[in-house]
Nucleic acid binder design. Structure first.
Lengths: 214, 214, 214, 214
DNA sequence: AATGAATGAGGATTCATTCAT
DNA sequence: GATGAATGAATCCTCATTCAT
């Protein structure tokens, strides 16, 4: 699942976020939009850019998506859906202990950022250009993801595992830290994705003043 | 200090970042550019927008700054300079104990974000549209600011005050957390700027696994 | 050959230089560009002017030519190509006697200037606004044309038909004389195109101090 | 005479066309306009260019000349006046023999082109951008110069010195040849100005089918 | 599904010129 | 004379989008 063909031309460093739909060029177009938004920003990227990247004609784009905004919306929708799904899945598998759950959540989040760096970057930096219903939908997905962290935080605070005096904003800050990775991460850098996830899990638990840092 | 007259027409929620220069409209133009970039993004803001905000003509903008890019550069330059100056000043006054120094640095940073939210937001979200020398200059200022935090981290690690196993990336994450405030903060929200600073100082020290959380 | 449809709306006094390409408006655009450059000069003509003349929208111009410079380049390319072709053809048909060849060359050149006065004018007066590769290409075509004259001059000098003591620069001056016609010629003037050609052939042979002036 | 100070900064290869007037910057402005028009064409040169070259402010230009067109007019006025004066003077000194007079006229004309190449170039290529009274005035000077040649031609035809069957247009062609030098001449080229003048005198006499080529 | 042509609005920037000082 | 600030119109060109095929 979440495999696609667009990565076959391997222009994109983050592979396979965009879901295959059966319609021929759809994946390529969405992938190209993601790349373009990542490279130039929403307003900096032109529909011509996207068409060029997708190796199709400008006008053909409109056979798939009715506007540039819809492209952004769809990209962000899929990115946030995947992030949410990954996080939920990881937490579900982590059992019931807050520390383990938090570690799992952070590692899933960091894993997403590392696997889909461009998507993660676009999700934080171009989100603001969404409007109306699209915006709300994405906000909802984002909030769902963050509330996973919040629930864990409160669970840990209630159980005495986390001692932070500021539980209300801790989740937001943990999420901020994780998303910020997308702004500087380079594969082939000092740390592997796995190490990065481990590291950030530690940061997160420390921030929560966990009794056990794992 | 760093007061200006541009805020007299009180269009800007974050007052007085842009320095008065003596040249009539210069402050108004720079302030307007900041607002426009904050509201629409660099590529979304048009020179006409900026001129309208500054209550001057489009062409007159070019008597002050030779291009939109230069406007962005100058805005970011001043924002980062002020942030750096505040942080340096605060740390200098904080004495020599790592915990106290770190608290001072975080509170200065958060103070900047709260006082100049738009500038802080633009500094992280529009920085990417800088190029060439301007970019390097801003990178340098940003690095200078971050390295203040890094030095404190290492000082604390050396002294045994901070126990984090990952000192290399701790500063970056602390700074990320602080800048991220600009993306959601609302004056009149639950927390005052002062409380927010206090809170983030605690998060930062906890993240560093400080023996004493102050 | 070299006929086109653009002259059907008969806006252009010099008919049919621009070659039909099959693409709908292409000929009209190129013809309009030629007229505009002729009437206002390269820098004086605006893309709006050209669009208006071609009865299309400003932006549609860019579906055919990527810039004003490209329009100029293409106009000059076609003009010089036609001039070169005419001259070559005429000389080839003129046999091997220098005097006859020179007469043929001059008459072909003058014929081009008379038939495509605007193009001839633009070719000399707006050439300077070409740059880069386009410029070199046009220079080459121009040189090819001039070297036809030069070869004839040397042939005549060698055979003793031309007695000029300055054969090196004679061709350039003959060509100058012929192109200059484009700056003052009016159809319906004292001389027909044919008479003008005859006259300039005589001037050229005289300038070369030909033994036989034909 | 016709010396000026503008050439002190020696930016201009053709020295001293523009007459000193006593008003401080006037010569520099006019010289700069000439250079700018020569380098970029009338429409390609901006008032800012001219001000920059003259090392004064944009607005100060308007203290001397009320518009860009007036600058062009004045430049062309002075250029044509000098050309006319030189030619008249030379012919007057040449005695009464048509061949000698024609030689003198051609050599004076070529001398002007060589001494003031930019001015000569601008005179032929930017003349078209003059309008109204200015245009007529310059046309008159140009015609005066050409009529010097015409008178000599007719004198020589009447006296039997020139045998051309086309005396009506001969003068125009001689003048064309001479002005065209401005489009290709390079000091330090194969021929000195003096040799060039000699050569063109010969071409001119040959074109007129003079009995004696001097 | 796919294309090339078409368009009106708007992009940043420069223009010649004016004005207050 | 000289300047910097100011302006409205115009510059080339690109935009997202639509339409006919």
């Amino acid at each position: 699942m979440t495999s696609n063909l667009a990565c076959m031309n391997s222009r994109s460093p983050d592979s396979g976020l965009i879901k295959e739909t059966g319609r021929g060029n759809e994946t390529a177009i969405l992938t190209s939009a993601l790349e373009a938004f990542g490279a130039e920003g929403f307003n900096g990227a032109s529909m011509r850019d996207i068409a060029r990247r997708a190796q199709t004609s400008l006008s053909n784009l409109y056979n798939y998506y009715p506007s540039k905004s819809h492209l952004l919306a769809e990209v962000l929708r899929q990115a946030n859906a995947e992030l949410l799904a990954r996080t939920e899945r990881a937490v579900a598998k982590a059992g019931n202990v807050p520390v383990a759950r938090l570690r799992a959540a952070v590692k899933a989040y960091v894993g997403f950022v590392v696997d889909h760096q461009t998507a993660a970057l676009v999700a934080i930096s171009e989100f603001r250009y969404l409007a109306g219903e699209d915006r709300e939908q994405v906000v909802q997905a984002r909030d769902s993801t963050q509330s996973i962290f919040e629930k864990i935080v409160w669970q840990g605070v209630d159980s005495g595992d986390f001692a932070t005096p500021y539980p209300e904003d801790a989740a937001r800050n943990i999420v901020s830290m994780c998303s910020a990775i997308s702004t500087w991460y380079h594969a082939r850098g000092r740390l592997s994705g796995r190490a990065l996830a481990e590291q950030h899990a530690r940061y997160a638990l420390a921030l929560l003043e966990a009794r056990e840092l794992g």
